[in-house]
Design a protein around this nucleic acid. Structure first.
Lengths: 277, 277
DNA sequence: CGAAACGTTGACGCACGTCAATGATAGTGG
DNA sequence: CCACTATCATTGACGTGCGTCAACGTTTCG
Protein backbone atom coordinates (compact mmCIF):
# COMPACT_ATOMS: atom_id res chain seq x y z
CA UNK A 1 0.00 0.00 0.00
CA UNK A 2 2.86 2.30 0.82
CA UNK A 3 4.62 1.36 -2.38
CA UNK A 4 1.38 1.82 -4.27
CA UNK A 5 0.86 5.32 -2.92
CA UNK A 6 4.43 6.30 -3.73
CA UNK A 7 4.16 5.04 -7.26
CA UNK A 8 1.08 7.16 -7.85
CA UNK A 9 2.27 10.38 -6.35
CA UNK A 10 5.56 10.81 -4.56
CA UNK A 11 4.38 13.72 -2.46
CA UNK A 12 1.40 11.85 -1.19
CA UNK A 13 3.65 8.87 -0.67
CA UNK A 14 5.86 10.94 1.57
CA UNK A 15 2.89 12.07 3.58
CA UNK A 16 1.71 8.53 4.03
CA UNK A 17 5.17 7.55 5.14
CA UNK A 18 5.20 10.39 7.63
CA UNK A 19 1.94 9.31 9.15
CA UNK A 20 3.08 5.76 9.45
CA UNK A 21 6.55 5.98 10.85
CA UNK A 22 7.44 9.58 11.39
CA UNK A 23 5.19 11.48 13.72
CA UNK A 24 5.84 9.34 16.75
CA UNK A 25 9.62 9.00 16.47
CA UNK A 26 10.13 12.65 15.58
CA UNK A 27 8.41 14.03 18.63
CA UNK A 28 9.96 11.40 20.83
CA UNK A 29 13.44 12.12 19.56
CA UNK A 30 13.03 15.83 20.05
CA UNK A 31 11.81 15.19 23.56
CA UNK A 32 14.92 13.17 24.36
CA UNK A 33 17.04 15.91 22.87
CA UNK A 34 15.24 18.55 24.90
CA UNK A 35 15.76 16.45 27.99
CA UNK A 36 19.45 16.27 27.23
CA UNK A 37 19.71 20.03 26.73
CA UNK A 38 17.77 20.62 29.93
CA UNK A 39 20.46 18.81 31.91
CA UNK A 40 22.76 21.72 31.28
CA UNK A 41 20.61 24.68 30.23
CA UNK A 42 17.37 26.17 31.51
CA UNK A 43 14.65 26.67 28.93
CA UNK A 44 11.19 28.10 29.57
CA UNK A 45 7.91 26.71 28.35
CA UNK A 46 7.75 28.70 25.16
CA UNK A 47 11.28 27.77 24.21
CA UNK A 48 10.62 24.10 24.91
CA UNK A 49 7.49 24.15 22.81
CA UNK A 50 9.27 25.82 19.92
CA UNK A 51 12.04 23.26 20.10
CA UNK A 52 9.62 20.35 20.10
CA UNK A 53 7.94 21.84 17.04
CA UNK A 54 11.10 21.57 14.97
CA UNK A 55 10.58 19.94 11.61
CA UNK A 56 12.67 17.02 10.49
CA UNK A 57 12.79 14.05 8.22
CA UNK A 58 13.60 10.64 9.67
CA UNK A 59 16.14 8.60 7.83
CA UNK A 60 16.97 4.96 8.31
CA UNK A 61 20.61 4.03 7.85
CA UNK A 62 22.10 0.58 7.56
CA UNK A 63 24.96 -0.36 9.84
CA UNK A 64 28.44 0.58 8.57
CA UNK A 65 27.16 3.31 6.30
CA UNK A 66 28.14 6.95 6.28
CA UNK A 67 25.33 9.32 7.18
CA UNK A 68 27.41 12.35 6.26
CA UNK A 69 30.59 11.98 4.27
CA UNK A 70 33.84 13.77 5.03
CA UNK A 71 33.77 17.17 3.37
CA UNK A 72 30.07 17.10 2.56
CA UNK A 73 28.32 20.44 2.63
CA UNK A 74 25.22 19.83 4.71
CA UNK A 75 22.12 21.94 5.24
CA UNK A 76 20.73 19.92 8.13
CA UNK A 77 21.81 18.49 11.47
CA UNK A 78 21.29 14.88 12.53
CA UNK A 79 19.45 14.00 15.72
CA UNK A 80 19.97 10.36 16.62
CA UNK A 81 16.63 8.64 17.13
CA UNK A 82 17.83 5.08 17.33
CA UNK A 83 21.07 3.17 17.13
CA UNK A 84 24.65 4.19 17.67
CA UNK A 85 26.33 6.88 15.61
CA UNK A 86 29.99 7.87 15.49
CA UNK A 87 32.08 10.67 14.13
CA UNK A 88 35.23 9.58 12.35
CA UNK A 89 38.51 10.98 11.23
CA UNK A 90 40.70 8.78 9.10
CA UNK A 91 44.01 8.34 7.35
CA UNK A 92 44.59 7.40 3.74
CA UNK A 93 45.54 3.83 4.63
CA UNK A 94 42.10 3.30 6.15
CA UNK A 95 43.02 3.47 9.80
CA UNK A 96 40.47 5.55 11.56
CA UNK A 97 39.84 7.29 14.82
CA UNK A 98 36.40 7.79 16.32
CA UNK A 99 36.18 11.30 17.72
CA UNK A 100 32.67 11.07 19.13
CA UNK A 101 29.96 8.55 19.97
CA UNK A 102 26.28 9.42 19.97
CA UNK A 103 23.25 7.59 21.29
CA UNK A 104 19.55 8.44 20.87
CA UNK A 105 18.76 11.97 21.99
CA UNK A 106 22.13 13.33 20.88
CA UNK A 107 22.38 15.83 18.07
CA UNK A 108 25.42 14.24 16.53
CA UNK A 109 26.54 17.14 14.35
CA UNK A 110 24.99 20.20 15.89
CA UNK A 111 28.26 21.98 15.17
CA UNK A 112 27.42 21.78 11.48
CA UNK A 113 25.20 24.81 12.04
CA UNK A 114 28.40 26.82 12.46
CA UNK A 115 30.47 24.82 10.00
CA UNK A 116 28.39 23.22 7.25
CA UNK A 117 31.37 21.62 5.53
CA UNK A 118 31.79 18.45 7.54
CA UNK A 119 35.29 18.16 9.03
CA UNK A 120 34.61 14.54 9.93
CA UNK A 121 32.33 11.79 8.69
CA UNK A 122 29.14 10.79 10.47
CA UNK A 123 28.81 7.05 10.48
CA UNK A 124 26.21 4.52 11.62
CA UNK A 125 27.83 1.93 13.89
CA UNK A 126 24.62 -0.07 14.07
CA UNK A 127 21.45 0.09 12.09
CA UNK A 128 20.27 3.56 13.01
CA UNK A 129 17.62 6.19 12.52
CA UNK A 130 18.40 9.89 12.48
CA UNK A 131 16.14 12.87 12.22
CA UNK A 132 17.42 15.34 9.67
CA UNK A 133 16.62 18.81 10.93
CA UNK A 134 17.12 21.67 8.45
CA UNK A 135 19.67 24.27 9.46
CA UNK A 136 17.20 26.93 8.40
CA UNK A 137 14.73 25.80 11.05
CA UNK A 138 17.43 25.66 13.72
CA UNK A 139 18.65 29.14 12.79
CA UNK A 140 15.15 30.51 12.95
CA UNK A 141 14.79 28.99 16.39
CA UNK A 142 18.03 30.37 17.79
CA UNK A 143 17.33 33.79 16.31
CA UNK A 144 13.96 33.98 18.02
CA UNK A 145 15.04 32.30 21.27
CA UNK A 146 18.61 33.22 22.21
CA UNK A 147 18.43 30.92 25.22
CA UNK A 148 18.03 28.01 22.83
CA UNK A 149 21.07 29.24 20.94
CA UNK A 150 23.00 29.31 24.18
CA UNK A 151 21.86 25.78 24.97
CA UNK A 152 23.08 24.62 21.55
CA UNK A 153 26.37 26.41 21.99
CA UNK A 154 26.79 24.83 25.42
CA UNK A 155 26.08 21.44 23.91
CA UNK A 156 28.93 21.97 21.46
CA UNK A 157 31.19 22.98 24.33
CA UNK A 158 30.37 19.79 26.21
CA UNK A 159 31.20 17.80 23.09
CA UNK A 160 34.53 19.58 23.12
CA UNK A 161 35.10 18.63 26.74
CA UNK A 162 34.45 15.02 25.90
CA UNK A 163 37.01 15.19 23.10
CA UNK A 164 39.51 16.68 25.50
CA UNK A 165 39.05 13.72 27.84
CA UNK A 166 39.41 11.34 24.92
CA UNK A 167 42.67 13.04 24.03
CA UNK A 168 43.92 12.47 27.55
CA UNK A 169 42.69 8.92 27.26
CA UNK A 170 44.45 8.13 24.01
CA UNK A 171 47.54 10.21 24.68
CA UNK A 172 48.34 9.30 28.26
CA UNK A 173 46.40 6.33 29.54
CA UNK A 174 47.23 2.70 29.01
CA UNK A 175 44.71 0.41 27.39
CA UNK A 176 43.12 -0.68 30.66
CA UNK A 177 42.50 2.87 31.83
CA UNK A 178 41.25 3.93 28.42
CA UNK A 179 38.67 1.21 28.23
CA UNK A 180 37.59 1.74 31.82
CA UNK A 181 37.20 5.46 31.19
CA UNK A 182 35.08 4.97 28.11
CA UNK A 183 32.86 2.46 29.90
CA UNK A 184 32.35 4.94 32.73
CA UNK A 185 31.67 7.84 30.41
CA UNK A 186 29.09 5.94 28.40
CA UNK A 187 27.41 4.75 31.59
CA UNK A 188 27.03 8.33 32.74
CA UNK A 189 25.96 9.69 29.39
CA UNK A 190 23.40 6.98 28.77
CA UNK A 191 21.96 7.02 32.27
CA UNK A 192 22.32 10.81 32.40
CA UNK A 193 23.45 10.59 35.99
CA UNK A 194 26.93 11.00 37.40
CA UNK A 195 26.49 7.95 39.54
CA UNK A 196 24.54 5.46 37.43
CA UNK A 197 22.22 3.36 39.55
CA UNK A 198 21.91 0.55 37.04
CA UNK A 199 24.68 -2.00 36.95
CA UNK A 200 24.40 -2.44 33.21
CA UNK A 201 23.47 -0.60 30.06
CA UNK A 202 22.79 -1.55 26.48
CA UNK A 203 25.25 -0.64 23.76
CA UNK A 204 25.63 -2.54 20.54
CA UNK A 205 29.26 -1.83 19.81
CA UNK A 206 31.84 -4.21 18.44
CA UNK A 207 35.35 -4.56 19.79
CA UNK A 208 36.69 -3.13 16.58
CA UNK A 209 34.53 -0.04 17.02
CA UNK A 210 35.74 0.29 20.60
CA UNK A 211 39.27 0.04 19.25
CA UNK A 212 38.62 2.91 16.85
CA UNK A 213 37.43 5.05 19.75
CA UNK A 214 40.38 4.16 21.94
CA UNK A 215 43.24 4.34 19.46
CA UNK A 216 43.88 0.60 19.83
CA UNK A 217 43.39 -2.51 17.72
CA UNK A 218 40.49 -4.88 18.16
CA UNK A 219 42.87 -7.60 19.26
CA UNK A 220 44.16 -5.52 22.11
CA UNK A 221 40.67 -4.39 23.08
CA UNK A 222 39.76 -8.04 23.34
CA UNK A 223 42.65 -8.75 25.68
CA UNK A 224 41.92 -5.69 27.75
CA UNK A 225 38.24 -6.58 28.06
CA UNK A 226 39.30 -9.99 29.25
CA UNK A 227 41.51 -8.42 31.89
CA UNK A 228 38.71 -6.16 33.15
CA UNK A 229 36.37 -9.12 33.25
CA UNK A 230 38.79 -11.32 35.17
CA UNK A 231 39.50 -8.54 37.62
CA UNK A 232 35.81 -8.30 38.31
CA UNK A 233 35.50 -4.70 37.12
CA UNK A 234 33.23 -4.87 34.10
CA UNK A 235 32.30 -6.93 31.07
CA UNK A 236 30.75 -6.52 27.67
CA UNK A 237 28.59 -9.19 26.09
CA UNK A 238 25.62 -9.38 23.78
CA UNK A 239 25.24 -5.65 23.47
CA UNK A 240 25.27 -5.06 27.21
CA UNK A 241 27.93 -3.56 29.41
CA UNK A 242 27.88 -4.96 32.92
CA UNK A 243 29.62 -3.00 35.61
CA UNK A 244 30.62 -5.27 38.45
CA UNK A 245 32.47 -2.77 40.61
CA UNK A 246 31.84 0.88 39.81
CA UNK A 247 34.29 2.25 42.36
CA UNK A 248 37.14 0.06 41.20
CA UNK A 249 36.33 0.79 37.56
CA UNK A 250 36.20 4.54 38.12
CA UNK A 251 39.45 4.34 40.05
CA UNK A 252 41.17 2.42 37.27
CA UNK A 253 39.95 5.09 34.86
CA UNK A 254 40.60 8.03 37.17
CA UNK A 255 37.12 8.96 36.07
CA UNK A 256 35.73 12.33 37.15
CA UNK A 257 32.38 13.07 35.51
CA UNK A 258 32.43 16.81 36.06
CA UNK A 259 33.55 17.46 32.49
CA UNK A 260 30.15 16.27 31.31
CA UNK A 261 28.55 19.28 32.97
CA UNK A 262 25.65 17.39 34.49
CA UNK A 263 23.50 19.09 37.12
CA UNK A 264 25.23 17.29 39.98
CA UNK A 265 28.47 19.12 39.35
CA UNK A 266 27.08 22.29 37.85
CA UNK A 267 27.95 25.29 39.95
CA UNK A 268 26.19 28.57 39.55
CA UNK A 269 23.75 28.77 36.68
CA UNK A 270 25.16 31.36 34.31
CA UNK A 271 22.78 34.22 33.68
CA UNK A 272 20.93 33.14 30.59
CA UNK A 273 18.54 36.02 31.03
CA UNK A 274 21.25 38.32 29.76
CA UNK A 275 21.25 36.42 26.48
CA UNK A 276 17.50 36.48 26.33
CA UNK A 277 17.04 40.22 26.68
CA UNK B 1 21.79 45.03 36.56
CA UNK B 2 25.28 43.78 37.24
CA UNK B 3 26.49 47.18 38.33
CA UNK B 4 27.27 46.38 41.92
CA UNK B 5 29.81 48.46 43.77
CA UNK B 6 32.37 45.79 43.06
CA UNK B 7 32.21 46.00 39.31
CA UNK B 8 32.36 49.77 39.36
CA UNK B 9 35.36 49.54 41.57
CA UNK B 10 37.12 47.10 39.26
CA UNK B 11 36.31 49.23 36.26
CA UNK B 12 38.05 52.16 37.86
CA UNK B 13 40.97 49.97 38.79
CA UNK B 14 41.05 48.80 35.24
CA UNK B 15 41.25 52.29 33.85
CA UNK B 16 44.09 53.14 36.17
CA UNK B 17 45.94 50.01 35.19
CA UNK B 18 45.43 50.68 31.50
CA UNK B 19 46.91 54.12 31.84
CA UNK B 20 49.85 52.67 33.68
CA UNK B 21 50.51 49.68 31.39
CA UNK B 22 50.09 51.61 28.15
CA UNK B 23 46.68 51.61 26.51
CA UNK B 24 48.08 49.68 23.56
CA UNK B 25 48.09 45.99 24.47
CA UNK B 26 44.37 45.68 25.18
CA UNK B 27 43.25 47.29 21.94
CA UNK B 28 45.92 45.50 19.98
CA UNK B 29 44.97 42.13 21.41
CA UNK B 30 41.31 42.69 20.67
CA UNK B 31 42.20 43.68 17.15
CA UNK B 32 44.11 40.45 16.64
CA UNK B 33 41.18 38.54 18.07
CA UNK B 34 38.75 40.35 15.80
CA UNK B 35 40.98 39.56 12.86
CA UNK B 36 40.94 35.92 13.83
CA UNK B 37 37.15 35.87 14.11
CA UNK B 38 36.84 37.66 10.78
CA UNK B 39 38.61 34.78 9.06
CA UNK B 40 35.53 32.67 9.63
CA UNK B 41 32.64 35.03 10.41
CA UNK B 42 31.40 38.25 8.88
CA UNK B 43 30.90 41.13 11.27
CA UNK B 44 29.70 44.59 10.39
CA UNK B 45 31.19 47.86 11.51
CA UNK B 46 29.03 48.30 14.56
CA UNK B 47 29.72 44.79 15.76
CA UNK B 48 33.44 45.22 15.24
CA UNK B 49 33.47 48.47 17.16
CA UNK B 50 31.55 46.93 20.05
CA UNK B 51 33.95 44.02 20.16
CA UNK B 52 36.98 46.30 20.18
CA UNK B 53 35.42 48.23 23.05
CA UNK B 54 35.41 45.18 25.30
CA UNK B 55 36.87 45.80 28.73
CA UNK B 56 39.63 43.64 30.09
CA UNK B 57 42.45 43.49 32.53
CA UNK B 58 45.91 42.53 31.30
CA UNK B 59 47.70 39.98 33.41
CA UNK B 60 51.30 38.91 33.17
CA UNK B 61 52.04 35.28 33.92
CA UNK B 62 55.39 33.64 34.50
CA UNK B 63 56.30 30.60 32.43
CA UNK B 64 55.12 27.27 33.80
CA UNK B 65 52.33 28.79 35.84
CA UNK B 66 48.65 27.98 35.70
CA UNK B 67 46.49 30.85 34.52
CA UNK B 68 43.31 28.98 35.38
CA UNK B 69 43.42 25.90 37.58
CA UNK B 70 41.53 22.70 36.90
CA UNK B 71 38.04 23.03 38.32
CA UNK B 72 38.25 26.77 38.95
CA UNK B 73 35.01 28.66 38.60
CA UNK B 74 35.87 31.59 36.37
CA UNK B 75 33.97 34.77 35.57
CA UNK B 76 36.20 35.88 32.73
CA UNK B 77 37.74 34.56 29.54
CA UNK B 78 41.43 34.87 28.67
CA UNK B 79 42.59 36.45 25.44
CA UNK B 80 46.24 35.72 24.78
CA UNK B 81 48.17 38.93 24.18
CA UNK B 82 51.66 37.55 24.26
CA UNK B 83 53.42 34.23 24.74
CA UNK B 84 52.23 30.68 24.34
CA UNK B 85 49.34 29.27 26.33
CA UNK B 86 48.16 25.68 26.58
CA UNK B 87 45.17 23.81 27.88
CA UNK B 88 46.01 20.72 29.89
CA UNK B 89 44.37 17.59 31.12
CA UNK B 90 46.35 15.39 33.45
CA UNK B 91 46.51 12.18 35.41
CA UNK B 92 47.21 11.76 39.08
CA UNK B 93 50.76 10.57 38.44
CA UNK B 94 51.58 13.87 36.78
CA UNK B 95 51.53 12.75 33.17
CA UNK B 96 49.70 15.31 31.15
CA UNK B 97 48.16 15.87 27.78
CA UNK B 98 47.93 19.23 26.08
CA UNK B 99 44.52 19.54 24.47
CA UNK B 100 45.02 22.96 22.91
CA UNK B 101 47.73 25.49 22.06
CA UNK B 102 47.05 29.20 21.81
CA UNK B 103 49.10 32.05 20.45
CA UNK B 104 48.42 35.81 20.61
CA UNK B 105 44.99 36.70 19.27
CA UNK B 106 43.40 33.46 20.48
CA UNK B 107 40.72 33.49 23.14
CA UNK B 108 42.06 30.47 24.93
CA UNK B 109 39.01 29.62 27.00
CA UNK B 110 36.11 31.23 25.21
CA UNK B 111 34.12 28.10 25.99
CA UNK B 112 34.17 29.12 29.66
CA UNK B 113 31.29 31.45 28.79
CA UNK B 114 29.15 28.35 28.45
CA UNK B 115 30.91 26.30 31.11
CA UNK B 116 32.45 28.45 33.84
CA UNK B 117 33.82 25.49 35.81
CA UNK B 118 37.08 24.82 34.00
CA UNK B 119 37.26 21.25 32.69
CA UNK B 120 40.96 21.71 31.98
CA UNK B 121 43.75 23.90 33.25
CA UNK B 122 45.00 26.95 31.37
CA UNK B 123 48.76 27.09 31.55
CA UNK B 124 51.46 29.49 30.42
CA UNK B 125 54.08 27.62 28.38
CA UNK B 126 56.28 30.71 28.16
CA UNK B 127 56.17 33.99 29.95
CA UNK B 128 52.82 35.29 28.77
CA UNK B 129 50.29 38.10 28.98
CA UNK B 130 46.57 37.50 28.84
CA UNK B 131 43.67 39.91 28.80
CA UNK B 132 41.00 38.88 31.28
CA UNK B 133 37.65 39.76 29.78
CA UNK B 134 34.64 39.53 32.11
CA UNK B 135 31.97 37.05 31.09
CA UNK B 136 29.38 39.70 31.87
CA UNK B 137 30.78 41.97 29.17
CA UNK B 138 30.93 39.13 26.66
CA UNK B 139 27.34 38.13 27.42
CA UNK B 140 26.16 41.68 27.03
CA UNK B 141 27.90 41.79 23.67
CA UNK B 142 26.42 38.54 22.37
CA UNK B 143 22.96 39.50 23.59
CA UNK B 144 23.06 42.78 21.70
CA UNK B 145 24.83 41.44 18.61
CA UNK B 146 23.78 37.87 17.80
CA UNK B 147 26.26 37.78 14.93
CA UNK B 148 29.05 38.16 17.48
CA UNK B 149 27.57 35.30 19.47
CA UNK B 150 27.57 33.19 16.34
CA UNK B 151 31.18 34.12 15.68
CA UNK B 152 32.10 33.04 19.21
CA UNK B 153 30.17 29.83 18.85
CA UNK B 154 31.89 29.15 15.53
CA UNK B 155 35.24 29.76 17.18
CA UNK B 156 34.42 27.09 19.75
CA UNK B 157 33.46 24.73 16.95
CA UNK B 158 36.79 25.28 15.21
CA UNK B 159 38.58 24.54 18.48
CA UNK B 160 36.63 21.31 18.53
CA UNK B 161 37.74 20.50 14.99
CA UNK B 162 41.32 21.01 16.02
CA UNK B 163 40.87 18.63 18.93
CA UNK B 164 39.39 16.07 16.59
CA UNK B 165 42.48 16.25 14.41
CA UNK B 166 44.68 15.94 17.46
CA UNK B 167 42.75 12.83 18.44
CA UNK B 168 43.46 11.35 15.03
CA UNK B 169 47.05 12.42 15.46
CA UNK B 170 47.57 10.80 18.83
CA UNK B 171 45.37 7.79 18.21
CA UNK B 172 46.40 6.74 14.74
CA UNK B 173 49.55 8.46 13.52
CA UNK B 174 53.11 7.47 14.30
CA UNK B 175 55.46 9.93 15.91
CA UNK B 176 56.80 11.29 12.63
CA UNK B 177 53.37 12.02 11.23
CA UNK B 178 52.19 13.52 14.51
CA UNK B 179 55.03 15.96 14.70
CA UNK B 180 54.75 16.87 11.06
CA UNK B 181 51.02 17.49 11.43
CA UNK B 182 51.47 19.73 14.43
CA UNK B 183 54.18 21.72 12.68
CA UNK B 184 51.90 22.20 9.68
CA UNK B 185 48.91 23.16 11.79
CA UNK B 186 50.83 25.73 13.77
CA UNK B 187 52.28 27.17 10.57
CA UNK B 188 48.80 27.68 9.19
CA UNK B 189 47.32 29.00 12.40
CA UNK B 190 50.13 31.44 13.05
CA UNK B 191 50.36 32.66 9.48
CA UNK B 192 46.58 32.50 9.15
CA UNK B 193 46.96 31.18 5.65
CA UNK B 194 46.44 27.66 4.41
CA UNK B 195 49.61 27.83 2.41
CA UNK B 196 52.07 29.75 4.57
CA UNK B 197 54.42 31.83 2.46
CA UNK B 198 57.09 32.15 5.13
CA UNK B 199 59.47 29.27 5.49
CA UNK B 200 59.74 29.71 9.23
CA UNK B 201 57.76 30.91 12.21
CA UNK B 202 58.56 31.74 15.82
CA UNK B 203 57.35 29.49 18.59
CA UNK B 204 59.04 29.19 21.93
CA UNK B 205 58.10 25.66 22.80
CA UNK B 206 60.28 23.03 24.41
CA UNK B 207 60.51 19.45 23.28
CA UNK B 208 58.82 18.35 26.47
CA UNK B 209 55.89 20.64 25.73
CA UNK B 210 55.70 19.26 22.22
CA UNK B 211 55.67 15.80 23.76
CA UNK B 212 52.71 16.75 25.95
CA UNK B 213 50.80 17.88 22.89
CA UNK B 214 51.66 14.75 20.91
CA UNK B 215 51.18 12.07 23.52
CA UNK B 216 54.88 11.21 23.40
CA UNK B 217 57.90 11.63 25.63
CA UNK B 218 60.44 14.39 25.21
CA UNK B 219 63.09 11.82 24.39
CA UNK B 220 61.11 10.48 21.52
CA UNK B 221 60.23 13.96 20.28
CA UNK B 222 63.93 14.65 20.20
CA UNK B 223 64.61 11.61 18.07
CA UNK B 224 61.72 12.39 15.78
CA UNK B 225 62.81 16.00 15.33
CA UNK B 226 66.23 14.71 14.40
CA UNK B 227 64.69 12.44 11.80
CA UNK B 228 62.65 15.27 10.26
CA UNK B 229 65.74 17.44 10.21
CA UNK B 230 67.92 14.81 8.55
CA UNK B 231 65.23 14.12 6.00
CA UNK B 232 65.24 17.79 5.12
CA UNK B 233 61.60 18.34 6.05
CA UNK B 234 61.72 20.76 8.97
CA UNK B 235 63.65 21.74 12.04
CA UNK B 236 63.14 23.50 15.35
CA UNK B 237 65.84 25.60 16.95
CA UNK B 238 66.05 28.69 19.11
CA UNK B 239 62.34 29.27 19.18
CA UNK B 240 61.98 29.04 15.41
CA UNK B 241 60.43 26.36 13.28
CA UNK B 242 62.06 26.15 9.86
CA UNK B 243 60.14 24.37 7.15
CA UNK B 244 62.52 23.10 4.50
CA UNK B 245 60.05 21.27 2.30
CA UNK B 246 56.38 22.11 2.84
CA UNK B 247 55.04 19.60 0.34
CA UNK B 248 56.99 16.71 1.79
CA UNK B 249 56.09 17.76 5.32
CA UNK B 250 52.39 18.05 4.54
CA UNK B 251 52.53 14.70 2.79
CA UNK B 252 54.19 13.04 5.77
CA UNK B 253 51.45 14.51 7.95
CA UNK B 254 48.61 13.89 5.51
CA UNK B 255 47.82 17.47 6.36
CA UNK B 256 44.59 18.95 5.01
CA UNK B 257 43.95 22.42 6.44
CA UNK B 258 40.24 22.53 5.66
CA UNK B 259 39.33 21.63 9.25
CA UNK B 260 40.62 25.03 10.31
CA UNK B 261 37.80 26.67 8.39
CA UNK B 262 39.92 29.36 6.81
CA UNK B 263 38.49 31.40 3.93
CA UNK B 264 40.53 29.52 1.34
CA UNK B 265 38.67 26.29 1.94
CA UNK B 266 35.28 27.83 2.49
CA UNK B 267 35.29 28.13 -1.29
CA UNK B 268 37.19 25.12 -2.57
CA UNK B 269 35.64 21.67 -2.39
CA UNK B 270 38.16 18.84 -2.18
CA UNK B 271 35.92 15.80 -2.67
CA UNK B 272 37.58 13.17 -0.54
CA UNK B 273 36.40 9.64 -0.96
CA UNK B 274 34.79 8.11 2.06
CA UNK B 275 34.98 4.47 2.74
CA UNK B 276 32.19 2.38 4.10
CA UNK B 277 32.95 -1.15 5.21
C1' DC C 1 21.19 -24.06 7.77
C1' DG C 2 24.92 -21.75 5.79
C1' DA C 3 27.81 -17.78 5.46
C1' DA C 4 29.60 -13.69 7.08
C1' DA C 5 30.68 -11.03 10.87
C1' DC C 6 32.53 -11.02 15.28
C1' DG C 7 35.29 -12.80 19.30
C1' DT C 8 39.39 -15.25 21.18
C1' DT C 9 43.99 -16.65 21.62
C1' DG C 10 49.06 -17.45 20.85
C1' DA C 11 53.66 -16.25 18.81
C1' DC C 12 56.42 -12.70 17.62
C1' DG C 13 58.03 -7.95 16.18
C1' DC C 14 58.48 -3.02 16.73
C1' DA C 15 57.62 1.75 18.05
C1' DC C 16 58.02 4.10 21.79
C1' DG C 17 59.01 4.43 26.94
C1' DT C 18 62.46 4.39 30.66
C1' DC C 19 66.79 5.26 32.66
C1' DA C 20 70.87 7.59 32.75
C1' DA C 21 74.80 10.25 31.39
C1' DT C 22 76.62 14.34 29.03
C1' DG C 23 76.54 18.45 26.25
C1' DA C 24 74.43 22.91 24.98
C1' DT C 25 71.71 27.30 26.18
C1' DA C 26 69.82 30.77 28.47
C1' DG C 27 68.64 33.43 32.37
C1' DT C 28 70.63 35.57 36.69
C1' DG C 29 73.44 38.08 39.76
C1' DG C 30 77.98 39.92 40.74
C1' DC D 1 80.86 40.85 30.73
C1' DC D 2 81.67 36.72 33.03
C1' DA D 3 80.76 32.99 36.18
C1' DC D 4 76.98 30.25 37.95
C1' DT D 5 73.18 27.41 37.58
C1' DA D 6 68.85 25.67 36.10
C1' DT D 7 66.72 24.25 32.18
C1' DC D 8 66.75 22.11 27.93
C1' DA D 9 68.67 19.05 24.17
C1' DT D 10 70.99 14.85 22.81
C1' DT D 11 72.27 10.16 22.73
C1' DG D 12 72.76 5.12 23.92
C1' DA D 13 71.19 0.78 26.13
C1' DC D 14 67.46 -1.68 27.21
C1' DG D 15 62.53 -2.78 28.58
C1' DT D 16 57.53 -3.18 27.39
C1' DG D 17 52.86 -2.29 25.78
C1' DC D 18 50.70 -2.78 21.96
C1' DG D 19 50.52 -4.08 16.88
C1' DT D 20 50.65 -7.74 13.43
C1' DC D 21 49.70 -12.15 11.71
C1' DA D 22 47.27 -16.12 11.74
C1' DA D 23 44.32 -19.71 13.21
C1' DC D 24 40.09 -21.11 15.16
C1' DG D 25 35.79 -20.75 17.86
C1' DT D 26 31.23 -18.36 18.33
C1' DT D 27 27.30 -15.65 17.26
C1' DT D 28 24.12 -13.52 14.25
C1' DC D 29 21.04 -13.24 10.60
C1' DG D 30 19.12 -13.90 6.11
Amino acid sequence: MLAHARSIHSQIGLLVEEMQLEIGPRRQGLQLFLQRLSLRSDLNGEEREALLALPGQPQRVEAHRDIVGLGDDVDHACLVLDGLVGRFAQLSDGRRQTIGLHSPGDMADLYSLMMPKAPSALHALTKATVLRIPHAALRKLTARYPAVGAAFWRDCVVDGNVMGQWLLNVGRREARGRLAHLICELAVRISRSERPSERSYPIRITQEQLADALGLTSVHVNRTLKALREEGLASLAKGQVHIEDWDALAAAAEFDPSYLGLPESRVATPALSVQGS
